[in-house]
Simulated assay, not measured.
Amino acid sequence: MMKNIYVLCGGRSPEHEVSLVTAMTIINGLNKQLYRVVPVYISREGCWQPLEPVTHELASVEELRAQTGSTVSAASSAADFLARLAADGDGGACVFPALHGEYGEDGTVQGMLELLNIPYVGNGVGASAASIDKTMTKKIAAAAGIPQSEYLYFHRQDWEQEEAQWCQRIETLIGYPCYVKPAKLGSSIGISCCANREELVVAITEAFRYDGKILVEQEIKGREVQLAVLGNERPVCSVAGEFVREADFFSYEKKYESGTLIKRIPAKLSAPVYEKLRAMTLSLFRALDGSGLMRTDFFVTDRGDIYLNEVNTLPGFTKNSMFPVLWEKTAGTTYTQLLDRLIELAMERHAGKQVTALQGVEA
């Protein structure tokens, strides 16, 4: 019997459009001989709409953008879908959350699926929730002994009450240039590089449009190097990759709209530096209790010093994104094979949880 793969896409996050691109590529890459592929569009308002099973090649993300209707509430539409999903049961369904950012990559959807006992691709509740919050990731990384740049974080109320004091703290501890980031957002949305106080105030105001907590980091002069992880209890790490580009801020436009990015895989690293990166990547994966997949990004200076930049539990996933290309270069894994492997890992983790639950009942 064909397994139903429900691909969640869209969502309430500012990364809604990026999610649709990811989902379209995943849907086109899935083996339709093995899976019955059902897109589930989630509107910007949070309404859920399962679409018809896809048997053809999607030509545009517009094929995923359903009209949910103004009279349908987010709660009732989600309940209808979850009832359908629960009816599949007994291993007949697996969810592939192709959702970036909050309300999808942050543990919320994962927790809902755990309650329904439905297998899903990717990281669990804890890893998703910790990794989406850059400040939590930094604390866990520090406990694991992974170096990182100086940083400060604060909430909107802190800024409103003590704007001048926070500017002074940033200038004293971090200095310029510095980076201002929403704590819980990806794809470089809401991130700014600041060279003085005037730019800093503008950047903080912009970042608070996306999150009530923001992070300010010291700039590290170095190349950004990325590594990919696959696995559950026995994770494996890819070779390292990097984008050949100028050493400036990697904006949303450069990531998704320039069309001129060139990858260098393997990255230009000495063997000892790569081994350090690999060890740190696997250590952080375990510290976060990762499962399925993860991408870690580091800065490497000319002296070979290493600093963590960020962790991504649902990295960019088009065929040209760094994560799938790293696995193609590491093990010859095709995009379709990578999707198969992620579904296998999801089912493996789910089966393990069933054994643990049964043993708990028997005890």
Score class of each variant (00 low, 15 high):
M2Y: 07
Y274R: 12
G212I: 13
D106T: 06
P182Q: 06
E242W: 03
G259I: 08
C167R: 02
Q67V: 15
D297S: 04
D211W: 01
S77D: 09
G222E: 02
L227C: 01
S128L: 04
Q161D: 13
G290L: 03
R234M: 10
G122C: 10
A247M: 08
A183H: 10
G222C: 04
G259H: 09
G101E: 01
E328N: 12
K268A: 15
V300F: 08
F208A: 07
D340F: 04
Q110K: 12
Y6G: 06
P315K: 00
A75D: 11
T330P: 05
T281K: 06
R65K: 13
K255Q: 00
E62P: 01
P14G: 04
M347D: 09
H56T: 13
H56V: 14
F243Y: 14
A183R: 06
Q49L: 02
L58R: 04
A129L: 05
P272I: 03
I306Y: 02
D90P: 03
E52C: 13
S238H: 07
L34H: 12
H155S: 04
E217K: 00
L215P: 07
Y103Q: 14
Q157A: 14
P315V: 03
S76G: 06
R295N: 03
L261G: 05
E219C: 11
P272N: 05
M24W: 07
L99P: 11
G92N: 12
Y35K: 01
F323C: 05
I265D: 04
L173C: 13
C194V: 11
Q354H: 08
A267C: 03
A203H: 09
V244G: 04
G360V: 12
D248L: 11
G231M: 10
I132Y: 04
Q33A: 12
G91P: 00
E224D: 06
V229C: 02
Y41I: 06
W166A: 02
I343F: 07
P97L: 09
L116H: 12
G124D: 08
F208D: 00
L113F: 15
